[in-house]
Nucleic acid binder design. Structure first.
Length: 426
RNA sequence: GGAGAGGUGGCAGAGCGGCUGAAUGCGCGACAUUGCUAAUGUCGUGACCUCGUAAGGGGUCCGGGGGUUCGAAUCCCCCCCUCUCCGCCA
Protein backbone atom coordinates (compact mmCIF):
# COMPACT_ATOMS: atom_id res chain seq x y z
CA UNK A 1 0.00 0.00 0.00
CA UNK A 2 1.25 3.45 -0.79
CA UNK A 3 0.97 6.42 1.48
CA UNK A 4 -2.00 8.50 0.42
CA UNK A 5 0.04 11.65 0.94
CA UNK A 6 2.72 10.25 -1.29
CA UNK A 7 0.20 9.55 -4.03
CA UNK A 8 -1.21 13.03 -3.63
CA UNK A 9 2.22 14.60 -4.03
CA UNK A 10 3.63 12.24 -6.65
CA UNK A 11 0.62 11.23 -8.68
CA UNK A 12 2.52 11.38 -11.98
CA UNK A 13 5.22 9.09 -10.69
CA UNK A 14 2.71 6.62 -9.31
CA UNK A 15 0.86 6.59 -12.61
CA UNK A 16 4.06 5.96 -14.54
CA UNK A 17 4.96 3.18 -12.16
CA UNK A 18 1.66 1.45 -12.71
CA UNK A 19 2.10 1.72 -16.44
CA UNK A 20 5.57 0.22 -16.27
CA UNK A 21 4.19 -2.67 -14.26
CA UNK A 22 1.27 -3.06 -16.67
CA UNK A 23 -1.15 -2.81 -13.78
CA UNK A 24 -4.34 -0.80 -14.11
CA UNK A 25 -5.34 1.50 -11.29
CA UNK A 26 -7.51 4.58 -11.09
CA UNK A 27 -5.39 7.32 -9.57
CA UNK A 28 -7.82 10.06 -10.55
CA UNK A 29 -10.62 8.41 -8.65
CA UNK A 30 -8.37 7.98 -5.64
CA UNK A 31 -7.43 11.66 -5.61
CA UNK A 32 -11.05 12.62 -6.01
CA UNK A 33 -12.18 10.41 -3.13
CA UNK A 34 -9.29 11.58 -0.99
CA UNK A 35 -10.21 15.23 -1.46
CA UNK A 36 -13.86 14.52 -0.73
CA UNK A 37 -13.02 12.51 2.36
CA UNK A 38 -10.79 15.20 3.80
CA UNK A 39 -13.35 17.87 3.16
CA UNK A 40 -15.97 15.84 5.00
CA UNK A 41 -13.45 15.16 7.74
CA UNK A 42 -13.10 18.83 8.51
CA UNK A 43 -16.85 19.25 8.82
CA UNK A 44 -17.17 16.19 10.98
CA UNK A 45 -14.38 17.37 13.26
CA UNK A 46 -16.18 20.66 13.72
CA UNK A 47 -19.46 18.96 14.48
CA UNK A 48 -17.78 16.75 17.02
CA UNK A 49 -16.07 19.70 18.60
CA UNK A 50 -19.45 21.35 19.06
CA UNK A 51 -20.87 18.18 20.45
CA UNK A 52 -18.10 17.78 22.96
CA UNK A 53 -18.40 21.34 24.15
CA UNK A 54 -22.14 21.02 24.50
CA UNK A 55 -21.68 17.78 26.35
CA UNK A 56 -19.43 19.44 28.88
CA UNK A 57 -22.05 22.12 29.41
CA UNK A 58 -24.80 19.56 29.91
CA UNK A 59 -22.76 17.83 32.55
CA UNK A 60 -22.73 20.98 34.65
CA UNK A 61 -26.15 22.34 33.80
CA UNK A 62 -28.99 22.54 36.26
CA UNK A 63 -31.80 20.03 35.71
CA UNK A 64 -34.14 22.60 34.15
CA UNK A 65 -31.52 23.84 31.69
CA UNK A 66 -30.44 20.34 30.90
CA UNK A 67 -33.63 19.28 29.11
CA UNK A 68 -33.33 22.14 26.63
CA UNK A 69 -29.62 21.56 26.00
CA UNK A 70 -30.14 17.87 25.42
CA UNK A 71 -32.91 18.59 22.96
CA UNK A 72 -30.62 20.94 21.06
CA UNK A 73 -28.05 18.21 20.74
CA UNK A 74 -30.41 15.88 18.96
CA UNK A 75 -30.01 17.79 15.70
CA UNK A 76 -26.23 17.69 15.91
CA UNK A 77 -26.34 14.01 16.59
CA UNK A 78 -28.46 13.29 13.54
CA UNK A 79 -26.35 15.44 11.28
CA UNK A 80 -23.15 13.94 12.53
CA UNK A 81 -24.41 10.46 11.94
CA UNK A 82 -25.41 11.27 8.37
CA UNK A 83 -22.06 12.89 7.64
CA UNK A 84 -20.15 10.00 9.09
CA UNK A 85 -22.07 7.56 6.97
CA UNK A 86 -21.25 9.50 3.84
CA UNK A 87 -17.59 9.62 4.76
CA UNK A 88 -17.62 5.94 5.53
CA UNK A 89 -18.83 5.14 2.03
CA UNK A 90 -16.07 7.19 0.50
CA UNK A 91 -13.46 5.65 2.76
CA UNK A 92 -14.45 2.10 1.91
CA UNK A 93 -14.14 2.74 -1.81
CA UNK A 94 -10.87 4.59 -1.28
CA UNK A 95 -9.31 1.79 0.76
CA UNK A 96 -10.35 -0.78 -1.79
CA UNK A 97 -8.66 1.20 -4.58
CA UNK A 98 -5.60 1.95 -2.48
CA UNK A 99 -4.95 -1.73 -1.87
CA UNK A 100 -4.52 -2.15 -5.60
CA UNK A 101 -2.12 0.70 -6.33
CA UNK A 102 1.23 -0.81 -7.24
CA UNK A 103 4.55 0.27 -5.77
CA UNK A 104 6.47 2.18 -8.46
CA UNK A 105 9.38 0.05 -9.68
CA UNK A 106 13.01 1.11 -9.37
CA UNK A 107 14.57 3.04 -12.23
CA UNK A 108 16.83 0.23 -13.33
CA UNK A 109 13.95 -2.20 -13.66
CA UNK A 110 13.81 -3.03 -17.38
CA UNK A 111 10.70 -2.27 -19.39
CA UNK A 112 8.75 -5.26 -20.55
CA UNK A 113 5.49 -7.11 -20.48
CA UNK A 114 6.45 -10.56 -19.20
CA UNK A 115 9.36 -12.78 -18.26
CA UNK A 116 10.59 -12.87 -21.87
CA UNK A 117 11.79 -9.31 -21.33
CA UNK A 118 13.70 -9.97 -18.12
CA UNK A 119 17.29 -8.81 -18.43
CA UNK A 120 20.11 -11.23 -17.75
CA UNK A 121 22.63 -9.72 -15.35
CA UNK A 122 25.19 -12.48 -15.09
CA UNK A 123 25.83 -16.17 -15.48
CA UNK A 124 27.69 -18.50 -13.18
CA UNK A 125 28.96 -21.95 -14.11
CA UNK A 126 28.77 -23.72 -17.40
CA UNK A 127 25.90 -26.00 -18.34
CA UNK A 128 27.42 -29.43 -18.51
CA UNK A 129 27.66 -31.15 -21.87
CA UNK A 130 26.90 -34.80 -21.39
CA UNK A 131 28.81 -37.48 -23.26
CA UNK A 132 25.82 -39.75 -22.75
CA UNK A 133 22.07 -39.43 -23.04
CA UNK A 134 21.16 -37.35 -20.01
CA UNK A 135 17.99 -38.28 -18.18
CA UNK A 136 15.31 -35.97 -16.89
CA UNK A 137 14.69 -35.89 -13.15
CA UNK A 138 11.41 -37.68 -13.65
CA UNK A 139 13.15 -40.49 -15.54
CA UNK A 140 15.78 -40.74 -12.85
CA UNK A 141 13.09 -40.65 -10.24
CA UNK A 142 11.14 -43.39 -11.89
CA UNK A 143 14.23 -45.49 -12.48
CA UNK A 144 15.09 -45.56 -8.79
CA UNK A 145 11.60 -45.42 -7.39
CA UNK A 146 12.36 -42.00 -5.93
CA UNK A 147 9.46 -40.04 -7.33
CA UNK A 148 5.92 -41.39 -7.44
CA UNK A 149 3.63 -39.05 -9.31
CA UNK A 150 0.94 -41.60 -9.99
CA UNK A 151 0.22 -42.36 -6.38
CA UNK A 152 0.64 -38.70 -5.54
CA UNK A 153 -2.24 -37.99 -7.86
CA UNK A 154 -4.23 -40.88 -6.44
CA UNK A 155 -3.87 -39.40 -2.98
CA UNK A 156 -4.20 -35.72 -3.73
CA UNK A 157 -4.83 -35.08 -7.42
CA UNK A 158 -2.51 -33.95 -10.17
CA UNK A 159 0.64 -31.99 -9.37
CA UNK A 160 1.14 -34.01 -6.22
CA UNK A 161 3.86 -36.55 -5.64
CA UNK A 162 5.58 -38.79 -3.17
CA UNK A 163 9.30 -38.96 -2.66
CA UNK A 164 10.77 -42.25 -1.49
CA UNK A 165 14.18 -43.54 -0.57
CA UNK A 166 17.49 -41.70 -0.99
CA UNK A 167 15.92 -38.68 -2.65
CA UNK A 168 14.19 -37.93 0.64
CA UNK A 169 17.57 -37.84 2.33
CA UNK A 170 18.90 -35.61 -0.43
CA UNK A 171 15.93 -33.26 -0.06
CA UNK A 172 16.43 -33.11 3.65
CA UNK A 173 20.17 -32.56 3.22
CA UNK A 174 19.85 -29.62 0.88
CA UNK A 175 17.23 -27.94 3.07
CA UNK A 176 19.29 -28.39 6.19
CA UNK A 177 22.42 -27.19 4.45
CA UNK A 178 20.54 -24.10 3.31
CA UNK A 179 19.26 -23.45 6.81
CA UNK A 180 22.70 -23.88 8.36
CA UNK A 181 24.26 -21.56 5.81
CA UNK A 182 21.79 -18.84 6.69
CA UNK A 183 22.23 -19.26 10.42
CA UNK A 184 25.94 -18.95 9.85
CA UNK A 185 25.27 -15.68 8.06
CA UNK A 186 23.47 -14.26 11.04
CA UNK A 187 19.85 -15.16 10.34
CA UNK A 188 17.61 -16.31 13.15
CA UNK A 189 15.87 -19.59 12.40
CA UNK A 190 12.11 -19.56 12.95
CA UNK A 191 9.39 -22.18 12.75
CA UNK A 192 6.24 -20.53 11.47
CA UNK A 193 2.54 -21.27 11.09
CA UNK A 194 1.72 -22.20 7.51
CA UNK A 195 -1.96 -21.47 8.07
CA UNK A 196 -2.50 -17.75 8.43
CA UNK A 197 -5.33 -15.26 8.65
CA UNK A 198 -6.55 -13.24 5.69
CA UNK A 199 -4.95 -10.24 7.38
CA UNK A 200 -1.47 -11.70 6.93
CA UNK A 201 -2.11 -12.45 3.26
CA UNK A 202 -3.39 -8.94 2.69
CA UNK A 203 -0.60 -7.42 4.72
CA UNK A 204 2.12 -9.03 2.67
CA UNK A 205 0.45 -7.98 -0.56
CA UNK A 206 -0.82 -11.34 -1.83
CA UNK A 207 -4.41 -10.24 -1.40
CA UNK A 208 -6.45 -8.81 -2.94
CA UNK A 209 -5.66 -10.44 -6.25
CA UNK A 210 -3.97 -13.68 -5.30
CA UNK A 211 -6.91 -15.48 -3.71
CA UNK A 212 -7.12 -17.98 -6.56
CA UNK A 213 -3.55 -19.10 -5.99
CA UNK A 214 -4.01 -19.92 -2.30
CA UNK A 215 -5.74 -22.78 -0.54
CA UNK A 216 -8.39 -21.69 1.92
CA UNK A 217 -9.84 -23.53 4.84
CA UNK A 218 -13.61 -23.77 4.83
CA UNK A 219 -15.62 -21.03 6.45
CA UNK A 220 -15.30 -22.44 9.94
CA UNK A 221 -11.92 -20.69 10.03
CA UNK A 222 -10.50 -17.58 8.44
CA UNK A 223 -7.28 -19.35 7.47
CA UNK A 224 -5.21 -19.80 4.33
CA UNK A 225 -2.30 -22.09 3.55
CA UNK A 226 0.74 -19.97 2.77
CA UNK A 227 2.59 -20.24 -0.51
CA UNK A 228 5.80 -19.17 1.24
CA UNK A 229 7.15 -18.55 4.73
CA UNK A 230 7.61 -14.94 3.63
CA UNK A 231 4.03 -14.37 4.75
CA UNK A 232 4.30 -15.40 8.42
CA UNK A 233 7.89 -14.12 8.74
CA UNK A 234 7.09 -10.66 7.41
CA UNK A 235 3.73 -10.39 9.16
CA UNK A 236 4.77 -11.66 12.56
CA UNK A 237 5.60 -8.18 13.87
CA UNK A 238 2.54 -6.57 12.31
CA UNK A 239 1.08 -3.73 14.36
CA UNK A 240 4.25 -3.31 16.38
CA UNK A 241 6.60 -0.39 16.77
CA UNK A 242 10.06 -1.94 16.78
CA UNK A 243 13.08 -0.48 18.50
CA UNK A 244 15.67 0.67 15.97
CA UNK A 245 18.30 -1.03 18.13
CA UNK A 246 16.73 -4.40 17.25
CA UNK A 247 17.04 -3.79 13.50
CA UNK A 248 17.77 -5.22 11.08
CA UNK A 249 15.78 -8.34 11.85
CA UNK A 250 16.96 -11.28 9.77
CA UNK A 251 14.83 -14.41 9.73
CA UNK A 252 15.16 -17.74 8.01
CA UNK A 253 12.42 -20.36 8.05
CA UNK A 254 11.83 -23.73 6.53
CA UNK A 255 8.21 -24.45 5.82
CA UNK A 256 5.82 -26.32 3.63
CA UNK A 257 4.49 -24.16 0.82
CA UNK A 258 1.17 -24.62 -0.90
CA UNK A 259 0.17 -23.29 -4.28
CA UNK A 260 -3.04 -23.89 -6.18
CA UNK A 261 -1.38 -23.17 -9.53
CA UNK A 262 -4.76 -22.15 -10.92
CA UNK A 263 -4.67 -21.34 -14.59
CA UNK A 264 -1.55 -23.38 -15.29
CA UNK A 265 -3.24 -26.42 -16.78
CA UNK A 266 -1.03 -28.00 -19.36
CA UNK A 267 2.03 -26.05 -18.26
CA UNK A 268 5.01 -27.94 -16.82
CA UNK A 269 2.87 -31.00 -16.25
CA UNK A 270 5.70 -33.51 -16.06
CA UNK A 271 7.83 -33.98 -13.01
CA UNK A 272 8.39 -31.81 -10.00
CA UNK A 273 8.73 -28.39 -11.61
CA UNK A 274 5.25 -27.12 -10.87
CA UNK A 275 3.60 -28.77 -7.88
CA UNK A 276 1.03 -27.94 -5.23
CA UNK A 277 3.23 -28.55 -2.22
CA UNK A 278 6.93 -28.31 -1.52
CA UNK A 279 9.41 -27.41 1.19
CA UNK A 280 11.22 -24.14 1.16
CA UNK A 281 13.86 -22.33 3.18
CA UNK A 282 13.12 -18.63 2.97
CA UNK A 283 15.00 -15.52 4.13
CA UNK A 284 13.38 -12.27 5.24
CA UNK A 285 14.89 -8.97 6.32
CA UNK A 286 13.10 -6.18 8.15
CA UNK A 287 15.01 -2.94 8.55
CA UNK A 288 14.76 0.84 8.69
CA UNK A 289 13.33 2.85 5.82
CA UNK A 290 16.58 3.64 4.09
CA UNK A 291 17.00 3.24 0.35
CA UNK A 292 20.72 2.59 0.57
CA UNK A 293 20.36 -0.08 3.25
CA UNK A 294 17.56 -1.70 1.30
CA UNK A 295 19.79 -1.93 -1.74
CA UNK A 296 22.57 -3.44 0.32
CA UNK A 297 20.24 -6.01 1.86
CA UNK A 298 18.89 -6.84 -1.56
CA UNK A 299 22.38 -7.56 -2.82
CA UNK A 300 23.12 -9.56 0.31
CA UNK A 301 20.10 -11.86 0.17
CA UNK A 302 20.79 -12.46 -3.49
CA UNK A 303 24.36 -13.30 -2.65
CA UNK A 304 23.24 -15.69 0.08
CA UNK A 305 21.37 -17.72 -2.50
CA UNK A 306 24.11 -17.51 -5.12
CA UNK A 307 26.66 -18.75 -2.62
CA UNK A 308 24.48 -21.77 -1.98
CA UNK A 309 24.15 -22.57 -5.65
CA UNK A 310 27.87 -22.20 -6.16
CA UNK A 311 28.60 -24.49 -3.24
CA UNK A 312 26.33 -27.07 -4.85
CA UNK A 313 28.01 -26.53 -8.21
CA UNK A 314 24.77 -25.72 -10.01
CA UNK A 315 25.04 -23.40 -13.04
CA UNK A 316 22.66 -20.45 -12.89
CA UNK A 317 22.00 -17.00 -14.15
CA UNK A 318 20.60 -13.92 -12.47
CA UNK A 319 17.93 -11.84 -14.17
CA UNK A 320 16.63 -8.38 -13.45
CA UNK A 321 12.88 -8.88 -13.63
CA UNK A 322 11.06 -6.47 -15.94
CA UNK A 323 8.19 -4.16 -14.97
CA UNK A 324 5.41 -6.33 -16.32
CA UNK A 325 6.66 -9.39 -14.45
CA UNK A 326 6.89 -7.62 -11.08
CA UNK A 327 4.31 -8.12 -8.39
CA UNK A 328 2.21 -5.24 -7.19
CA UNK A 329 4.36 -4.46 -4.19
CA UNK A 330 7.83 -5.15 -5.45
CA UNK A 331 10.18 -2.28 -6.14
CA UNK A 332 12.63 -4.62 -7.75
CA UNK A 333 13.14 -8.34 -8.11
CA UNK A 334 16.09 -10.49 -9.10
CA UNK A 335 15.43 -14.08 -10.01
CA UNK A 336 18.00 -16.83 -9.98
CA UNK A 337 17.36 -19.30 -12.76
CA UNK A 338 19.18 -22.59 -12.53
CA UNK A 339 20.26 -24.78 -15.40
CA UNK A 340 17.93 -27.73 -15.86
CA UNK A 341 19.13 -30.10 -18.58
CA UNK A 342 15.68 -31.58 -19.20
CA UNK A 343 14.36 -28.12 -19.97
CA UNK A 344 17.41 -27.35 -22.03
CA UNK A 345 17.32 -24.03 -20.33
CA UNK A 346 17.28 -22.11 -17.08
CA UNK A 347 14.33 -22.53 -14.71
CA UNK A 348 13.42 -20.16 -11.90
CA UNK A 349 14.60 -21.37 -8.51
CA UNK A 350 14.90 -18.16 -6.47
CA UNK A 351 13.22 -14.82 -6.30
CA UNK A 352 14.75 -11.93 -4.37
CA UNK A 353 12.47 -8.93 -3.83
CA UNK A 354 12.57 -5.64 -2.06
CA UNK A 355 9.42 -3.77 -1.18
CA UNK A 356 10.37 -0.52 0.49
CA UNK A 357 7.49 0.13 2.90
CA UNK A 358 4.80 -1.44 0.74
CA UNK A 359 4.26 -4.44 2.99
CA UNK A 360 4.96 -2.65 6.24
CA UNK A 361 2.27 -0.06 5.55
CA UNK A 362 -0.31 -2.75 5.04
CA UNK A 363 0.96 -4.58 8.10
CA UNK A 364 1.39 -1.43 10.16
CA UNK A 365 4.91 -2.58 10.86
CA UNK A 366 6.94 0.34 12.20
CA UNK A 367 10.05 1.28 14.14
CA UNK A 368 11.11 4.18 16.29
CA UNK A 369 14.25 5.75 14.88
CA UNK A 370 17.21 7.30 16.69
CA UNK A 371 15.43 10.64 16.53
CA UNK A 372 12.35 9.22 18.24
CA UNK A 373 10.29 9.46 15.06
CA UNK A 374 8.13 6.54 14.02
CA UNK A 375 8.34 5.24 10.46
CA UNK A 376 7.35 2.20 8.46
CA UNK A 377 10.02 -0.46 7.97
CA UNK A 378 11.47 -1.73 4.73
CA UNK A 379 11.07 -5.43 4.02
CA UNK A 380 12.87 -7.84 1.70
CA UNK A 381 12.86 -11.54 1.05
CA UNK A 382 14.46 -14.24 -1.02
CA UNK A 383 14.34 -17.97 -1.47
CA UNK A 384 17.26 -19.91 -0.07
CA UNK A 385 16.24 -23.33 -1.34
CA UNK A 386 12.94 -24.66 -2.69
CA UNK A 387 12.93 -28.44 -2.34
CA UNK A 388 11.48 -29.65 -5.62
CA UNK A 389 13.31 -27.32 -7.94
CA UNK A 390 16.56 -27.95 -6.10
CA UNK A 391 16.03 -31.67 -6.55
CA UNK A 392 15.47 -31.21 -10.27
CA UNK A 393 18.72 -29.27 -10.55
CA UNK A 394 20.71 -31.62 -8.35
CA UNK A 395 19.52 -34.81 -10.02
CA UNK A 396 19.82 -33.61 -13.58
CA UNK A 397 23.10 -31.73 -13.31
CA UNK A 398 24.94 -34.23 -11.19
CA UNK A 399 23.79 -37.46 -12.83
CA UNK A 400 26.06 -40.17 -14.21
CA UNK A 401 25.64 -42.41 -17.22
CA UNK A 402 24.39 -45.34 -15.13
CA UNK A 403 21.69 -43.20 -13.57
CA UNK A 404 23.45 -42.67 -10.29
CA UNK A 405 23.74 -39.15 -8.94
CA UNK A 406 26.76 -37.51 -7.34
CA UNK A 407 26.15 -35.83 -4.03
CA UNK A 408 27.83 -32.41 -3.94
CA UNK A 409 30.50 -32.22 -1.30
CA UNK A 410 28.71 -29.82 1.09
CA UNK A 411 25.71 -32.15 1.33
CA UNK A 412 27.67 -35.25 2.20
CA UNK A 413 27.91 -34.55 5.93
CA UNK A 414 24.11 -34.45 5.95
CA UNK A 415 23.95 -37.85 4.23
CA UNK A 416 26.19 -39.90 6.38
CA UNK A 417 29.18 -39.09 4.24
CA UNK A 418 27.74 -40.65 1.08
CA UNK A 419 28.98 -39.17 -2.19
CA UNK A 420 26.69 -41.07 -4.52
CA UNK A 421 23.06 -42.20 -4.62
CA UNK A 422 21.26 -44.48 -7.05
CA UNK A 423 24.20 -46.76 -7.77
CA UNK A 424 22.94 -50.08 -9.12
CA UNK A 425 23.15 -52.80 -6.50
CA UNK A 426 23.97 -50.39 -3.69
C1' G B 1 -16.21 -28.47 22.15
C1' G B 2 -18.37 -26.94 27.44
C1' A B 3 -17.93 -23.52 31.97
C1' G B 4 -15.65 -19.25 34.04
C1' A B 5 -12.12 -14.90 34.21
C1' G B 6 -9.89 -11.20 31.49
C1' G B 7 -7.87 -7.92 27.26
C1' U B 8 -6.26 -0.13 29.21
C1' G B 9 0.06 3.77 27.14
C1' G B 10 7.15 0.65 26.17
C1' C B 11 5.84 -2.63 30.66
C1' A B 12 2.91 -3.34 35.26
C1' G B 13 -1.69 -1.61 36.84
C1' A B 14 -6.09 1.87 38.50
C1' G B 15 -10.48 3.71 36.41
C1' C B 16 -16.40 1.00 35.42
C1' G B 17 -21.40 6.87 32.00
C1' G B 18 -19.45 13.63 31.61
C1' C B 19 -14.10 16.52 35.71
C1' U B 20 -9.94 10.49 31.94
C1' G B 21 -5.69 10.29 26.37
C1' A B 22 -6.31 8.16 30.83
C1' A B 23 -4.16 7.86 38.37
C1' U B 24 0.12 5.35 40.33
C1' G B 25 4.63 2.58 39.78
C1' C B 26 8.56 0.93 36.56
C1' G B 27 11.14 2.11 32.21
C1' C B 28 12.94 6.06 29.02
C1' G B 29 14.72 11.40 28.10
C1' A B 30 16.44 16.34 29.72
C1' C B 31 18.16 19.28 33.60
C1' A B 32 20.01 19.87 38.72
C1' U B 33 22.96 17.87 42.79
C1' U B 34 26.92 14.68 44.71
C1' G B 35 34.53 13.62 42.60
C1' C B 36 32.89 8.98 38.71
C1' U B 37 29.14 5.17 39.12
C1' A B 38 25.02 4.66 42.19
C1' A B 39 21.30 7.51 44.58
C1' U B 40 18.01 11.81 44.90
C1' G B 41 15.08 15.91 43.01
C1' U B 42 12.48 18.71 39.06
C1' C B 43 10.35 18.60 34.44
C1' G B 44 9.12 15.76 30.31
C1' U B 45 7.70 11.16 27.94
C1' G B 46 1.91 7.44 22.81
C1' A B 47 0.12 6.82 17.81
C1' C B 48 -2.76 8.55 13.83
C1' C B 49 -5.82 12.10 10.81
C1' U B 50 -6.64 17.08 9.63
C1' C B 51 -6.46 22.75 9.23
C1' G B 52 -2.32 26.27 9.13
C1' U B 53 3.78 29.20 5.74
C1' A B 54 4.55 28.81 10.95
C1' A B 55 3.38 29.37 15.96
C1' G B 56 -0.58 26.73 17.03
C1' G B 57 -5.67 24.74 16.61
C1' G B 58 -9.30 20.70 15.97
C1' G B 59 -10.44 15.49 15.83
C1' U B 60 -9.78 9.99 16.39
C1' C B 61 -7.73 5.89 19.11
C1' C B 62 -8.43 2.11 26.16
C1' G B 63 -8.29 -5.98 21.54
C1' G B 64 -11.57 -5.42 16.55
C1' G B 65 -16.52 -4.23 14.68
C1' G B 66 -21.57 -2.66 15.57
C1' G B 67 -25.30 -0.49 19.07
C1' U B 68 -27.59 2.46 23.33
C1' U B 69 -26.89 7.76 24.98
C1' C B 70 -26.88 14.85 24.40
C1' G B 71 -22.19 12.30 26.04
C1' A B 72 -18.88 5.52 26.43
C1' A B 73 -12.40 3.01 28.33
C1' U B 74 -16.87 2.62 31.34
C1' C B 75 -23.66 -0.14 29.47
C1' C B 76 -25.48 -3.90 25.38
C1' C B 77 -24.45 -7.34 20.97
C1' C B 78 -21.00 -9.97 17.58
C1' C B 79 -15.95 -11.39 16.56
C1' C B 80 -10.70 -12.13 17.85
C1' C B 81 -7.10 -13.21 21.54
C1' U B 82 -5.15 -14.72 26.53
C1' C B 83 -5.72 -17.43 31.17
C1' U B 84 -8.15 -21.34 34.56
C1' C B 85 -11.12 -25.85 34.92
C1' C B 86 -13.59 -29.98 32.23
C1' G B 87 -13.82 -32.92 27.64
C1' C B 88 -11.13 -34.68 23.30
C1' C B 89 -6.40 -35.43 21.09
C1' A B 90 -0.85 -35.84 17.96
Amino acid sequence: MLDLKYIRQNSALVREGATKKHIACDIDRILELDAASREMGVEIDQLRQGQKQAGAKIAQASPEERAQLVADQQATKTELKAQEERQQQVTVELQELLLRVPMPPAEDVPDGKDDAQNAELRKWGKPRSFDFEARSHQDLGEMHGWIDVERGARLAGSRNYLLKGDIVLLESAVLRFALDQMVERGFTPVTVPTLVRTEAMRGTGYFPGGEDQAYRCDDRDDLWLVGTAEVPLTAMHAGEILDVADLPIKFVAQSSCYRREAGTYGKDTRGLYRVHQFQKVEQVIIDVADEQKSLEHHAAILNNAEALMQALDLPYRVVNVCGGDLGQGQVQKFDIETWMPSREGYGETHSASRFHDFQSRRLDLRYRGEDGKVAHCHTLNNTVAASTRMLIALLENHQNEDGSVNVPEPLRPYMGGRDLIGKAGS
